[in-house]
């Protein structure tokens, strides 16, 4: 279980997180929604230790993540970055097997390559993709390679940062289905951040809305449409008028 208690983070005078409280139960898929620039990515980066919160406590299975042994802690995570964040200088299979080629999870090159090709197949990419470089792939393919890399070491927890941004609706649907299948299959705990409502409905067990630096609403995905919270209603229906200012 991941728990954030009163987490704050500011960048200069920009107070991005103003006291976030959120619980993500083990094995659940939590989707965090919210407008652009509301701190969704910062939230994930705080959990991973990529950004240090100013205040508050973040725990994983009851242990303060700031005090955890970094390598062992990060070995439990996989992350799909918004732009894929594939390493340009490495071939696709080397990207996917990055964790399997070095560090405590290191295994023989042939085995790592075989696992990478299997993970590529899992995300719908043919084995011939393995020997290409990221720059030779389309945006959708890069996203899928990023997804394969996130799941390559079969992590317990997977973060997805805007998994469908920039993709056409069909490819977005493919990615959504993949994420849902992978999370269900692996029994992983997942946090996805997105403002794509189709993704939310496809991926989420629970939804949390981040607005004004705090979790404005959280609940099961089936309650999202019927909640009376005006912020959630404005957001999920994409209305220009409401409590969320259109000009930010």
């Amino acid at each position: 279980m991941i728990e954030l208690a009163n987490v704050t983070k500011s960048f200069g005078s920009n107070h991005v997180l103003r006291g976030v409280n959120l619980i993500v139960p083990k094995g659940q898929s939590m989707v965090v929604i919210g407008g652009s620039g509301t701190g969704k990515s910062v939230l994930l980066k705080c959990v991973l230790g990529l950004v240090r919160p100013d205040q508050g406590l973040i725990t994983l299975d009851g242990q303060d993540v700031a005090k955890a042994e970094r390598e062992a802690f990060l070995a439990r995570f996989g992350m799909l970055f918004q732009g894929g964040a594939l390493f340009d200088s490495l071939k696709v299979w080397e990207n996917v097997a990055f964790r399997l080629l070095r560090g405590p999870l290191k295994r023989p090159k042939a085995e790592a390559r075989a696992i990478a090709i299997e993970k590529l197949r899992r995300v719908g990419l043919v084995p011939e993709t393995a020997d290409l470089f990221p720059a030779e792939l389309s945006g959708g393919m890069q996203k899928r390679v990023g997804l394969a890399r996130a799941i390559a070491a079969e992590p317990e927890i997977i973060f997805f940062d805007e998994p469908t941004t920039g993709l056409d609706p069909i490819m977005a649907g493919v990615i959504n289905d993949l994420i849902r299948e992978i999370v269900s299959e692996m029994g992983a705990t997942a946090i996805t951040i997105t403002h794509d409502m189709t993704s939310v409905r496809a991926i989420a067990d629970r939804v949390a809305m981040l607005h004004g630096g705090v979790i404005r609403w959280t609940g099961p995905v089936k309650e999202m449409d019927v909640t009376s919270d005006p912020y959630v209603q404005q957001f999920i229906h994409g209305r220009a008028t409401g409590p969320i200012a259109a000009v930010r």
Binding site: L50, F81, A85, L86, F87, D88, R102
Partner: peptide, 16 residues
């Protein structure tokens, strides 16, 4: 370029 495309963050999350 690696930094602005989050490749440095990706390295960290891959325990590197």
């Amino acid at each position: 370029t690696m930094k602005v495309t989050e490749q440095i963050d990706a390295l960290v999350t891959l325990s590197t």
